[in-house]
Structure formats: C-alpha cells, structure tokens
Nucleic acid binder design. Sequence first.
DNA 1: CGGATGTGTCGGGAAAAGCTGACATGTCGG
DNA 2: CCGACATGTCAGCTTTTCCCGACACATCCG
Lengths: 108, 108
Amino acid sequence: MVVGMAAVDVFSALANPVRRGLLEALRDGPRAAGDLAGRFALSRPAVSEHLSVLRNAGLVREEPRGRHRYYHLEARPLAEVGDWLHPFEHYWRGRMAALADLIDEENP
Amino acid sequence: MVVGMAAVDVFSALANPVRRGLLEALRDGPRAAGDLAGRFALSRPAVSEHLSVLRNAGLVREEPRGRHRYYHLEARPLAEVGDWLHPFEHYWRGRMAALADLIDEENP
DNA sequence: CGGATGTGTCGGGAAAAGCTGACATGTCGG
DNA sequence: CCGACATGTCAGCTTTTCCCGACACATCCG
C-alpha cells in the first residue's frame, strides 16, 4: 500500500524557490491555482507546472471545486527531509557544534 | 562581511542524491576526495564537481594535506533548511497533524 | 631528478528544468 | 445555450544540470 505515492524526490521538489514559496503560501490554507499564480512574477503555465511537480512529490493535493481548483498543503512527505536532516543537527546546534568545531581545528 | 559565502542555494545542493550521500559520508569525519569518489558508481571528475557544488554552498571545507585533499563537513548552512522546515513540522507531527487533517477533511 | 599518484579543470554532449504563448477543456451566469 | 472565466496541457526554445574522457598541475617516493 503506497500511501505517499512520492514518485518524485522531495528534495528536488524543494530545490526551487518558487515551489518553496508555494508551500509557504499554502500553509495559511487552501488556495486556488490562479490565486497562487498571481503571487509570482511568472506566467500562469509555469506556476501550474511547479504545482504539478509538488503534486508528484506528494506535497500538495488538488481539490476541484466549481471552476476553481484548490490546492491543499500535504506536509507529510516533508518528514523525510526532517529525518534526513536530524543526524546533522548536532553539528550546528548547541555545545555539540562548538565541540565538533574545536576537535576539527585541534585535530587537522 | 560575508561569512558563509553561500553563493549557491543550499536546497539546490541537497537536491542530488550523490551530494546527500557525500554529506552523510563526511559525518564520520574528514575524507580524501579519492576515498569519497570510490564510494559511488560515478567517474571521479563527476564526484569532484559535486564536491565543488557542496563547497559553493558552504557545506564542505577542503583541507589540502600532502597530495591528498581532505573534505570536512560544514553543517552550519543546513540550519537554513531546518529553519525553513520548522514552520511545517506542526503539520505532520503529533496531534497538530491529525487536527489539521481533520479540519481539512471536515472543511472542504 | 623522474615516474607514480591524487586531484582539479576543461571540452563537449545528452538529458532535464524552466519559461512562454497558444490551444483545449470544463464550469458558471445570464 | 452561450460567452466569460479558471485551469491544465502542448510545442518549442533557452538554460542548466549531469556525466565522461582527456589533460594539467602539484606532491611524494626512490
């Protein structure tokens, strides 16, 4: 049972600033495609393609309503990024970071 | 005073699985370029280019020693990813996720 | 010094990403 | 039913990414 259907790498989906901006906008609630497109200095088809990438990554869900098409944030795949990032946190947070830096400089 | 010199987007740097693998390998300590290249089914110049991208993103630091070139993990720029990700965590972690899903389904 | 080794860079080609204007489809309002 | 509207998709172009073989340069070893 594939729940995520993450056919596309989540990391690649996040590589584009427009797509990250779209996800940020969707944090405030579902938005219609046209509304989303109006927020970027980009043609409407370009934004539509970005939304398609996000959908393939499982990061948004589309809900057709009337002649609009509302996009919903689907944040669960972002957990993969958080999980990947977690083992690195020690290297930049708190005393572990300072310790690591110290060891790194003292032990070349 | 530019301390990070992050000329390249960190998110883009993480978009490639080889580059993510390089960072994972460097978590265990500094490694020579050849050692790193041997871990991937890729030509050595390709890995070298990936390392260059990571360096431009401020994610690795290179230390020439003899005829080797040791790469060190520089995790601090990853904090940007963590910071970006943080406002989304509520949507997939704990009760907030369930609540958000519920609201989303009840209020279409 | 001279050959072997480790590594960056260059030239170039294939593939993918990103963008836009034009067209197709489906929905609402009168 | 028909025109206006919202949106996805297509064709085509430009730019970027990704990869490799070949070359250049520096360092070590004998």
